[in-house]
Write a protein that binds this DNA or RNA. Sequence first.
DNA 1: ATGAGTGCAAATGGTTTGCAGGCTC
DNA 2: GAGCCTGCAAACCATTTGCACTCAT
Lengths: 154, 154
Amino acid sequence: MVAGYDWLRALHIDPIDIVKICKECGLRLTGQRRVIVELLQQASDHPDALELHRRATKVDPRIALSTIYRTLSLLEEKGVLERHVFGSGPARFERADAEHHDHLIDVESGQVVEFRSDEIERLQQQIAREHGFEIISHRLEIYVRPLQRRKRES
Amino acid sequence: MVAGYDWLRALHIDPIDIVKICKECGLRLTGQRRVIVELLQQASDHPDALELHRRATKVDPRIALSTIYRTLSLLEEKGVLERHVFGSGPARFERADAEHHDHLIDVESGQVVEFRSDEIERLQQQIAREHGFEIISHRLEIYVRPLQRRKRES
DNA sequence: ATGAGTGCAAATGGTTTGCAGGCTC
DNA sequence: GAGCCTGCAAACCATTTGCACTCAT
């Protein structure tokens, strides 16, 4: 267990083991990769490449944006991360969870809330099969606004 | 009824009335807009801007790509068209249907199949409400491959 | 010491925009 | 005629890539 991530254990989420991943894939374990993975480990806000670069440069001011992009693509390819494109914005990343989940995106704040519906998953399977397809992946994004307001269209 | 679109009537789909739309919105009815709308009227393949430009230049070789983009954005804004971004590809467009629908995307051929599930729509409403949100819009894309194959991973 | 990985800068690709002239109203 | 639209070219922005150098193995 990597020090400082005991709270992850409490949530039954294993931290990304970048050491193991690199070893298994024949990749080199560089300082940059450590930093990027650690930042994503802690992030709960689905940051984009530029935001990750901002955070990374605070740890290592020499890290290049292109390295961020290369690392993100690499780790996505290895199944360690997931890439999401919400609306017309830049790609945003999060650690790949064992359990797939979908997203509610608050268009007013940009905040992202994760959810999972086995019911919806099941219906999708059924629909794909009815059309003669098998599912490779899917994405469901619900763009929302907070409900509690009383006034209309401000 | 616009000549040549009787088949639309048969499907209970009203053709886009660009004349009416322009009149209502105070927009000018130009030849370019007519061409673009007509092409989208006929298209069943969710074309992107470049593809529309290709088709449009066959009717009017002088039409500019930027005009295509401007018109598409304008008509999307007016609610006449819908814009979809599948995977990392360019935006693809279709006429906005009265009934919302979602998409199955065959990743091998790029073919898009439309479907609608009231059940899924209902579940989404429920989920959003449970989280204290109201839905503004949503998108569900299921990336698939044909099922009929017997071999695995070619 | 070897070559995978990096930083930097330049290239890319889809889309947008500034501007001068053209065409609808 | 006024000014909305268009064509053209340049600008934009997220992302990718070529290249020489660095550093993990």
